[in-house]
Design a protein around this nucleic acid. Sequence first.
DNA 1: TAAAGTTGTTCGCGATTCGCGAACCTATGT
DNA 2: ACATAGGTTCGCGAATCGCGAACAACTTTA
Lengths: 108, 108
Amino acid sequence: MIAKRLSELRKKKKWSLQYIADQLNIAKSTYAGYESGYRQPSLEAVKELATLFGTSTDYLLGVVDDEQQTIELTNTSFPITVDGERLTEDEIHQLIAFIRVKREMAKK
Amino acid sequence: MIAKRLSELRKKKKWSLQYIADQLNIAKSTYAGYESGYRQPSLEAVKELATLFGTSTDYLLGVVDDEQQTIELTNTSFPITVDGERLTEDEIHQLIAFIRVKREMAKK
DNA sequence: TAAAGTTGTTCGCGATTCGCGAACCTATGT
DNA sequence: ACATAGGTTCGCGAATCGCGAACAACTTTA
């Protein structure tokens, strides 16, 4: 599974095997092994690859199928900030209302 | 890192080494090696452990901490949705502007 | 209370897998 | 034609794996 995901992500980014190998400080053939399924990356390498590709290890390992996490504002348990300052519950509700009104008006 | 996390999680759940080993179909000594740091679990084992503990591989591997992740709107790394519908770049900018204006007015 | 389990730790063993450079092919550019 | 870059595969030595065994410290059972 990780082999397929790595191959897809790399092609999407149009990166070469050598480039990724350089970023992780491993041999080109080593990384090639990851993509072909001939080798399994170390846990450390998996972490670095997730960072490099801007995705999660859960995605690389196939635990989840979404490359990127999406944040649903109406149902989020995460703190949300603007300019580093956290939004209050009320502010988030205002933003949601704003978006809903905006969309409703766009329909007419 | 994974060793520490596994040990913490197992104790929190009050499970024995043997119980986890049975769930993963590996030897007790093998799992013990994971917790002591003497061995590294396979990628497959990491996935199964995340499922068993009800956590993410990102947490097990130490990519993220248990602390809640905060989403900075001005640095939108994730897609954001309201009622399941994704916000456009413009909409996000409007929300940011809205919050900034609101804060500025609150100062006066 | 003696015997039988349970738990967690560590060890050595054989087998597996790792990471590497080398070699090779194809395509592209000089 | 030659050089360069990307991608694939191979064999090698070294590192690591997963296992059962053995052990001490408790806890449970008879």
